Amino acid sequence: MKQTIRELPESSRPYEKCLQWGPSVLSDSELLAVILRNGVQGTNSLVLANQILSLTKDTSYPGLLGLLHMSIPDLMKVNGIGKVKAVQLKCIGELSKRMASAVARPRLSFNEPITIAKYYMEHLRHEEQEVLIVMLLDGRNHLLKEEIISRGTVNGTLITPREIFMEALKYHAVGVVLVHNHPSGDPTPSECDQEITERVYTSGELLGVKLLDHIVIGDQKYISFREQGMLAY
């Protein structure tokens, strides 16, 4: 397709289609074309969008989800995607994750693990390494702060209760919730996960800062230690 977007029939132009019928009628490639705005000589933005999406078709995350797993250098390998457009595409991916969290936040309840899982799902299920987050709560179970404690392999020899409770004591928290992801997509807790949980629980009992739950995020799945009755140490 060597036509420019302007040379296409108006009914086939993504921007005009969006104006007339709204963004929900656009295909993934058309939505991407609207964001890209311009192609390069001999390649319009719609073709360019399809070329980007085709890079992800043989990966674990085909289509739009693949954009979240592509680096800026990966995107810049596509003819017509320079640094500016690559950064824009990465920022759009980040924006989508934050919007998902913003939608889930008003429903956040620390008595309902599924609401915590939904709050973190889009942010954590796309991570390619393990991320351990501690949520700090006050006496009324209001969220005081959320802090990334570790990025990389969540290992019992590397993560210590001290790191977690230093944050808790700093913010006068009386309860904590641990959340971390499994990049494999399977949220089944490992022996290491169970070891860390037990150590944090025991230390919290001594300090008067209770571990309320440890939630492991997979790909659209989660496991809550609390729901599974795994906190009765």
Rank of each mutant, 00 (worst) to 15 (best):
L95T: 12
E127N: 10
L36D: 03
I72Y: 07
V177M: 08
G22F: 00
S203P: 01
Q20N: 15
P183A: 10
V176H: 09
A86Y: 03
D138C: 06
I164N: 08
I164A: 14
T43L: 04
L31D: 09
Q228V: 00
L212Y: 10
E30N: 07
Q194W: 02
G82Q: 08
T197Q: 13
K57C: 03
A117H: 06
K85H: 08
S45Q: 13
I52R: 01
Y120T: 07
G175I: 00
D193L: 01
R37H: 08
N79K: 15
R140Q: 09
V40A: 12
N111Y: 12
Y61M: 04
K97P: 01
G204K: 03
S190W: 05
S24T: 07
R199V: 05
N111V: 04
I223Y: 07
Q20L: 09
K83S: 11
S24M: 06
V176L: 07
K57E: 14
V174F: 00
E7G: 15
G139L: 04
E205P: 01
T43P: 00
K118G: 10
V174I: 06
G39R: 01
V200Y: 02
V216Y: 01
L211K: 10
W21K: 15
I215V: 15
R125Q: 13
I92E: 02
A86S: 09
V216S: 05
S11I: 09
F225W: 06
N79P: 03
A49D: 05
K170C: 06
I217L: 10
L67V: 03
A104T: 02
T153Q: 10
L207I: 09
D186H: 01
L207D: 12
H142R: 13
P183S: 10
A168H: 11
E128C: 02
E163M: 14
E163H: 12
K57T: 09
A232M: 03
D28Y: 05
I5F: 06
R37G: 02
D28M: 08
E127G: 06
K17D: 13
V40P: 03
Y233S: 15
S11L: 05
T202S: 15
S12G: 02
H180T: 04
P73M: 01
M230I: 06
T160M: 12
T197C: 15
L158C: 07
P161W: 11
I52E: 00
I148C: 13
V103A: 14
L53W: 03
V78Y: 04
A173Q: 02
G42F: 02
L46N: 06
K17T: 11
V25A: 08
T188S: 15
